[in-house]
Design a protein around this nucleic acid. Structure first.
Length: 814
RNA sequence: GCCGGAGUGGCGGAAUCGGUAGACGCAGUGGACUUAAAAUCCACUGGGUAAUUAAUGCCCGUGCCGGUUCGAGUCCGGCCUCCGGCACCA
C-alpha cells in the first residue's frame, strides 16, 4: 500500500483538469444550472473566507453535474478599485502591475484548491474589453434618461479623496477605511435607481429563496412610506410651505413647524436676517457629519397657518430635520413624535395631545414622553372620537378633497452616485465642449481607454485631471477642442453585470450574446458574503431590470437562490491582520492538502453559520481522508459498471445490513446537499459509513467492493482529488464529475426489525426490538408484559396508551 | 431606539414534520501494537446519585420564567444575553 500523499494526488488531477478542460461549459445541452460565487476583489492573496465561499459553490456545482445538469460554473476577478492606487502610493508600483500580479497569485491558488471552474469564461474587470461595456451601458442609460449629473452635497471621504454612494457610508463612516464621512458639494453623475424603487421592493415578495435577513435589509434601505403632503402657509404672505407626514391623523396636534437648515426658505431667511445666518450655517455644518447630535434650533420670528384649523404656529429652523427627505420641512407634533417631544421640552414649546390610548386620558402639560401608538382622537374637530387608524385614512381623504393635502409615496432610496475622483476605474464617457455643452462619447469611439502613463500621488484631486493627453480631446459635434470627464465609475458598476458576461462568449459589438445569456441566466444559485446585502445585490438587481427594459434580457431578477455564508472566525473574532489571527490557506494546503482544507471548512459548520477555525478539526478531517485512502487502496478491486449487489433484493443477515447502510448513506448525503446545503452532516454521515466499513468482517465480498465505490462517488463533490484518484485505482478511467450520482432504493432502507421506544408518562423507560410485521395489539401486549414496564405500572391505573407504530409507545398513568 | 438572527456537553456542532437529546468530529481516559515514542487499531466518554438483581436503576439537564400537549431543544406568551443591520427618514 502507498501512503496518502495529497500533494502528488492533487497536483496530478489539477493538471489533468486543466489540460482536458474537464469543467468547460457548453450551452444548449440539456437542463442548465448556473452556479455562481461572488468574484473576488484581488488584493493580496486568497483568504479563508474566499476558500469557504468557493468550496461551498464547488460542492453544489459538482453535485449538479452528477445529477445530469448542464452546469455553468465560472470565475473572474473584480480588479478595479482603490487598493490598487494605495499600493501604487506605498509601494511605487503601477496599479495595473499590482492588480495583474495579484490576479496571477489568485488564479494559481484557486487552481491549487481544485475548484471546478470553466476558466475559458474568466472576466477581469480592468481589461478594456470589459470596461468598454461599462461605458456602453452608461451611454445606453444616458439615452434612456437613467443617467444624470447634478451638483449636490455628496458623501466625502477625505482618506480616499473621493465621494461615496449612500450605500457605502456605514454609521457615518467610509465602508472601506472608516474615516468619518463629510459632505462636499460636487457635480456628480447618478444612475436613476429610484426609478425602479417600487419594482425592486415588490419583486422581493417572489424571491422565496433569498435569506429573509437580506430581503429585510433591502426593504429597509428602499424605505417606502406612504403619507400625505400637507400645505401649510406662511402667515404674513400666504406663501405655501408643504410638509410631509406619515401621520396625518396628528395634524391637529401640530404646535410648531420646522424647516431644515438647508431648506430654500431657511436660506432666504439667512440672507435677510444676518443675526440668524451664523446659527443656520452652524446647524447645517452639524448635519454634514452623520450621527447623533444634540437637537438645536432657532425661532424665525415667522408664523405658519395650519390649514386644518387655521391656527397660527411658530416656524423654527432645527438641525434634526433633513433636507433630503420629504419636503425638508415638518409639522411638529410633540405629543406623538419622540423627536418633536424632545425638542419641544428643550425649547418649552406647547405639547397638545390629540390621540389617547384606549385605557387612559393624556394631557399635554404633564406628558413625560410622546405617545406614538394608536388610540382615540381628541381635540381634532369633527374627527374627535374616531379611532386614529381610521382617522388617518379619513383625514387624508378630507384634506385631499379640500385641496390642502395630497397622497404621497416616499422612498429613502436615493439615486446611485457613480462618480469617483479616482484613477483606477472605468472612465466616464463624457466630453465637455464649451460651445456644445455636455456630450456623450459616440459609441464608435468606445472604449475611452484609461491612460497608463500616470503618477499616483494620492493628493490634489482626481489623478486623471493631470493627464493632458487624456483630458484634451475634440468635441464630437463641432470638432473644437474639448475636455473629457475625469471622474471614473464606482467599481460596483463592474460587478453589476459580470454574471451576464460569464454567460456568453464575448462578441466585439455587444457586451454579451443575448441568446446564450438567455440560456444560462438567471443564476440558479448565488453564494457570497452578507456584507453585500444592499450594495452589490441591489445594484445588480437594478442593472438587470434596466437591461430588461433595454430589451437585452428577458429576466426580471438575476439571482434565483441566494446563500449568504457565515464568517470564518478564530478565537471568537473575525480574522483580521490587526488582531493577528489570520490563517493563510496556502499554509494549510502545503501542510494537509486542498481536500483536507475543503473538507474541514465544510464539516466545521453549516454554510450560513459562522465557522470557528480549529487546527485540531483539520487533523480530524485529514485522519478521515487517510482512513478512506487505506480502506480503498487495501481492499478495493474492480470498479463495476452497475451496482448490482447494492440494489439486490435477495441479501440476508450481515449483507442485508450493509446494503441498508449503503442506501441510507446515499439517501442522507443526497438530501443534505439537495435540500439544505448541510454539508457538515453529509460528511458526518460519510464518516459513520467509513467507521462501519472498517468493522465489517467480509471485506472481500462483492457488496463490500461496491460499497467502496459508492463511498468514493459520494465523497467526490467535497474532496474531488482523493476521490478521483481512488476511483482510478479501482479501475475507473473517466472523470467522476460525469458519473451519475447514485440513487437509493427506499425498499432497502427498511429493515424488518426496529427499535420500539417505551415511555411511561413521557419518560423513557424501556426499548426493545420488534418486527415490523407484528400487529398493534400484539405489540402493546408485549410492552405491558415487559419487566421494566411492569415495575412502573404496578398498582397504578392506565389512562391511555399512545402508540406510534414502529417507533414509540407512551403509557399514560394516573 | 427599531429590525433581523442565535443561545444545546470541556469545544465545533447534530437532532429535517412535536416522538430515544448530545449523531459526527475534536479534546480526554483505558487497552492493543512497539525496546520506546509517534502513527494506527479497539473501547469508554453530559452531570448527579445508589453498591441491589452488578445487568444497570433512579434523578437532573437544550439561556430564564410560565403555558399548550400523552410527550417540547422543537409550538405559544413573557423576559435575559450575545451577534449582525439600520438609525433624527417625520
Amino acid at each position: 500500500m502507498i501512503d496518502y500523499d495529497p500533494k502528488i494526488v492533487e497536483e496530478k488531477w489539477q493538471k489533468h483538469w486543466e489540460k482536458e478542460k474537464t469543467f468547460a461549459s457548453h450551452p444548449y445541452q440539456g437542463e442548465k444550472y448556473y452556479m455562481l460565487e461572488m468574484f473576488p476583489y484581488t488584493s493580496g492573496g486568497i483568504h479563508i473566507g474566499h476558500v469557504r465561499n468557493y468550496t461551498i459553490g464547488d460542492v453544489v456545482a459538482h453535485y449538479k453535474r452528477m445529477q445530469g445538469f448542464n452546469v455553468l460554473h465560472p470565475i473572474g476577478f473584480d480588479a478595479f478599485g482603490l487598493p490598487a492606487e494605495n499600493a501604487a502610493i506605498e509601494k511605487k508600483i503601477h496599479p495595473k502591475d499590482w492588480t495583474y500580479s495579484n490576479i496571477d497569485t489568485f488564479r494559481r491558488q484557486l487552481k491549487r484548491l481544485g475548484f471546478s471552474y470553466d476558466w475559458d469564461r474568466e472576466v477581469i474587470t480592468c481589461d478594456k474589453d470589459y470596461y468598454h461595456w461599462n461605458q456602453w451601458f452608461f451611454l445606453k442609460f444616458y439615452e434612456k434618461g437613467l443617467v444624470y449629473r447634478k451638483k449636490t452635497p455628496a458623501n466625502w471621504c477625505s482618506t480616499c479623496s473621493t465621494v461615496l454612494a449612500n450605500e457605502q457610508v456605514e454609521q457615518g463612516k467610509c465602508y472601506r477605511c472608516a474615516t468619518p464621512v463629510t459632505q462636499k458639494s460636487l457635480k456628480q453623475w447618478f444612475f436613476k435607481i429610484t426609478q425602479y424603487a417600487d419594482e425592486l421592493l415588490k419583486e422581493m415578495k417572489n424571491m422565496d429563496n433569498w435569506p429573509v435577513a437580506v430581503k429585510k435589509m433591502q426593504d429597509n434601505w428602499i424605505g417606502k412610506s406612504e403619507g400625505v403632503q400637507i400645505d401649510f402657509s406662511i402667515f404674513h404672505n400666504g406663501e405655501k410651505l408643504p410638509v410631509y407626514t406619515t401621520r396625518p391623523d396628528t395634524v391637529f396636534g401640530a404646535t410648531y413647524l420646522v424647516l431644515s437648515p438647508s431648506h430654500p426658505f431657511s436660506e432666504k431667511i439667512a440672507k435677510k436676517n444676518p443675526s440668524l445666518k451664523s446659527e443656520i450655517e452652524r446647524m447645517r455644518q452639524e448635519q454634514l457629519i452623520k450621527g447623533e447630535v444634540e437637537k438645536r434650533g432657532i425661532f424665525t420670528n415667522l408664523w405658519a397657518i395650519n390649514p386644518v384649523n387655521k391656527e397660527k404656529i411658530p416656524i423654527w429652523i432645527a438641525n434634526y430635520v433633513l433636507m433630503e427627505y420629504g419636503t425638508g420641512a415638518i409639522m411638529a407634533v410633540p405629543a406623538h413624535d419622540e423627536r418633536d417631544f424632545e425638542f419641544a421640552k428643550k425649547y418649552n414649546l406647547p405639547v397638545r395631545v390629540v390621540i389617547c390610548p384606549p385605557d387612559k386620558n393624556l394631557h399635554g402639560e404633564n406628558l413625560e414622553q410622546s405617545y406614538v401608538g394608536e388610540g382615540k382622537m381628541v381635540k381634532s374637530g369633527k374627527f374627535s372620537g374616531m379611532a386614529s387608524d381610521k382617522a388617518r385614512k379619513e383625514m387624508s381623504e378630507w384634506m385631499k378633497e379640500n385641496k390642502i393635502g395630497t397622497f404621497q409615496v416616499r422612498y429613502k432610496l436615493r439615486d446611485w452616485c457613480i462618480s469617483r475622483q479616482r484613477y483606477w476605474g472605468t472612465p466616464i464617457p463624457i466630453i465637455y465642449c464649451s460651445k456644445c455643452g455636455t456630450l456623450p462619447v459616440p459609441e464608435k469611439d468606445l472604449p475611452v481607454e484609461l491612460p497608463f502613463n500616470i503618477k499616483i500621488t494620492g493628493k490634489g484631486g482626481s489623478p486623471l485631471e493631470k493627464v493632458k493627453e487624456f483630458v484634451q480631446c475634440h468635441c464630437p459635434v463641432c470638432g473644437e477642442k474639448a475636455k473629457r470627464e475625469t471622474d471614473t465609475m464606482d467599481t460596483f458598476v463592474d460587478s453589476s453585470w459580470y454574471f451576464f458576461s460569464y454567460a456568453s462568449l464575448k462578441g466585439d459589438s455587444f457586451p454579451f450574446d443575448s441568446r446564450e445569456a438567455g440560456y444560462w441566466m438567471p443564476v440558479d444559485q448565488y453564494i457570497g458574503g452578507i456584507e453585500h446585502a444592499i450594495l452589490h445585490l441591489l445594484y445588480s438587481r437594478f442593472f438587470t431590470k434596466a437591461l430588461r427594459d433595454m430589451g437585452l434580457v428577458k429576466i426580471k431578477e438575476p439571482f434565483t437562490r441566494l446563500l449568504t455564508q457565515g464568517m470564518v472566525v478564530k478565537d471568537g473574532a473575525k480574522m483580521s491582520k490587526s488582531k493577528g489571527n489570520v490563517v493563510d490557506p496556502q499554509d494549510i494546503i502545503d501542510r494537509y492538502g486542498a481536500d483536507t482544507l475543503r473538507g474541514f471548512i465544510l464539516f466545521a459548520a453549516p454554510p450560513e453559520a459562522d465557522l470557528e477555525w480549529k487546527k485540531e478539526g483539520l487533523e480530524g478531517i485529514n485522519r478521515f481522508l487517510t482512513r478512506v485512502w487505506r480502506l480503498v487502496t487495501e481492499y478495493a478491486s474492480n470498479w463495476k459498471k452497475k451496482l448490482e449487489e447494492t440494489y439486490s433484493e435477495n441479501r440476508e443477515g450481515k449483507e442485508k445490513e450493509l446494503q441498508k447502510m449503503v442506501n441510507k448513506t446515499i439517501e442522507k448525503v443526497t438530501q443534505d446537499i439537495e435540500e439544505r446545503f448541510h454539508f457538515n452532516t453529509a460528511l458526518a454521515c460519510l464518516m459513520e459509513f467509513v467507521n462501519y466499513l472498517y468493522l465489517y468482517p467480509e471485506k472481500e465480498s462483492l457488496l463490500f467492493q461496491e460499497s467502496l465505490q459508492v463511498l468514493t462517488t459520494l465523497l467526490y463533490p467535497f474532496c474531488p482529488h482523493i476521490a478521483q484518484e481512488l476511483a482510478e485505482r479501482m479501475g475507473y478511467k473517466e472523470d467522476l464529475c460525469y458519473l451519475r450520482w447514485p440513487e437509493y432504493r427506499k425498499k432497502l432502507l427498511r429493515s424488518d426489525k426496529v427499535t420500539l421506544v417505551v415511555q411511561i408518562n413521557g419518560k423513557l423507560r424501556d426499548r426493545f426490538f420488534i418486527t415490523t410485521r407484528e400487529n398493534k395489539e400484539n405489540v402493546e401486549r408485549k410492552v405491558l408484559n415487559r419487566e421494566r414496564v411492569q415495575k412502573h405500572i404496578q398498582g397504578r391505573c392506565i389512562k391511555k396508551i399512545v402508540h406510534i407504530p414502529g417507533k414509540l409507545i407512551n403509557i399514560v398513568l394516573d
